[in-house]
Design a protein around this nucleic acid. Structure first.
Length: 413
DNA sequence: TCTGGGGTCCTAGGACCC
DNA sequence: TCTGGGGTCCTAGGACCC
């Protein structure tokens, strides 16, 4: 029998902002951007929530609900910093920690009783330690599975601890609404309501065939979930098993929709550079490049292309995404969002680099150097405009000497 | 209510192979 | 050629999470 903690920071982004600006305390605060901008609420203070503001709500809607709220820009670096500090504390309680996102973590506390006392006491100590180190509040759910621990921490909000005792899982879950199960969203909830399932307890009356038939693979795991088991999907695998990334993407929503081809290309090139850079940081090569377009009516298309040779180079991502754009963009419609995603990762073999006579390797080195410059002097230090980049590429094609690493050695002295 | 950005997982059809 | 069946890859779209 396991003892799992789910630790969830309370109004994390808002609370961190309050540490930087204590005058925000006790006021309705919305993190996510200006109230007039395109965008959604990343986090709302409890005071703002009283007015119906919640995360994922459009900023402009949040303003309608609560015009007196203070709207602040998000600061991801700050959140990463505090997330790291929280992790340090958690790690002192058990080495089996998994940050499930920037503001929540699972801990396997099985077998820590002798050192830390019974679960409720250990949780109390943990709560105190986090408060002392970060001045932030959190809520903690304790149960025999991750699923139940997560649901419990949600119910413990805010600044609370909830322990679901072993053996009482299904009795605890039964009266809760089905949407409390992580993975049951709007659509699934509606479908379940359609067959008369409103509470988790109602799930146990359905037979597996019914669930599989209607809801596929996911349906099957629902039966187990109603019993509190970590079956399928989200909760498979052990705590702390860090999976490798499966995709890397960047996208941008324009403040006003655009039909401007140059603007689209320049934005895409910039996003492609960011993706390529992260590929290099992870030492990954992507086989498939995917373009994403969202038009003003919100219809969204994705178009993908797979390469013969995986890449991590700016130039390849830019070229591929650009040709996908040209081949697939509906010029009659204005574009709201453009994005690029790299998938199909393969580790570099070394073989591939020999095949092109070392071209990739020289590029990799040159781009790595550019990445370092950006780290040191900021993004603008090594910016190549889309137009400039085009010329640069032509030169490279005509003249191998223009390749990085092939520059004629300058004669000194 | 006029809807971000970064992810994961699932489904489903078609191509292609044996 | 009136038509199988399984496996895998590729592509597109969508639900969902924080």
């Amino acid at each position: 029998m396991k003892t799992i903690f789910h630790v969830d920071m309370d109004a994390f982004f808002v609370s961190v902002e309050e540490l930087y600006d204590p005058s925000l305390r006790g006021k309705p605060v919305v993190v996510g951007g200006k109230s007039t901008e395109r965008g959604v609420v990343s986090a709302a203070s409890y005071e703002a929530r009283k007015f119906g503001v919640h995360s994922a709500m459009p900023l402009r809607t949040a303003y309608q609900h609560c015009p007196q709220a203070i709207f602040v820009e998000g600061h991801p670096e700050r959140y990463r910093e505090y997330s790291g500090r929280v992790f340090e504390i958690l790690n002192q309680f058990t080495p089996v920690v998994e940050m499930a996102s920037i503001d929540e973590a699972y801990l396997d506390m099985t077998g820590t009783e002798r050192l830390l006392g019974p679960p409720l006491l250990a949780a109390h100590k943990l709560h105190e330690a986090i408060k002392k180190a970060t001045d932030l509040n959190c809520s903690i759910g304790i149960a025999t599975s991750r699923l139940v621990a997560k649901i419990a921490s949600d119910q413990a909000k805010r600044n609370g601890i909830l322990h679901v005792l072993p053996g009482l899982e299904s009795r605890y879950l039964a009266p809760l609404e089905v949407k409390r199960i992580p993975g049951v969203g709007k659509v699934m909830e509606k479908n379940l309501h359609g067959i008369g399932v409103r509470r988790i307890g109602d799930l146990s009356v359905l037979d597996e065939k019914q669930l599989t038939g209607r809801f596929g693979k996911w349906g099957l795991s629902l039966a187990g979930k109603s019993q509190g088991l970590d079956a399928g999907g989200w909760f498979s695998g052990e705590i702390g098993e860090k999976a490798n990334p499966k995709s890397i993407s960047h996208e941008h929503t324009f403040n006003e929709d655009t039909r401007d081809a140059e603007r689209l290309e320049a934005t895409l090139a910039h996003l492609a550079e960011k993706v390529a850079r992260r590929l290099r940081e992870h030492g990954l090569h992507a086989r498939t490049i995917q373009l994403k377009l969202r038009y003003s009516d919100f219809t969204t298309i994705t178009r993908a292309h797979s390469l013969a040779t995986p890449t991590q180079l700016d130039i390849d991502l830019i070229e591929q995404s650009r040709s996908l754009l040209h081949a697939n963009r509906d010029r009659a419609q204005a574009v709201r969002l453009i994005g690029i995603q790299a998938t199909g990762f393969e580790q570099a073999t070394g073989q591939l680099e020999l095949m092109d006579g070392g071209r990739s390797e020289r590029w990799r080195q040159a781009l790595g150097a550019a990445d370092k410059l950006r780290d040191k002097y900021g993004e603008s230090a090594v910016a190549l405009g889309a137009g400039l980049r085009g010329k640069f590429r032509e030169r490279v094609h005509e003249n191998p000497a223009a390749l990085p690493g092939k520059e004629p050695k300058r004669k000194t002295d």
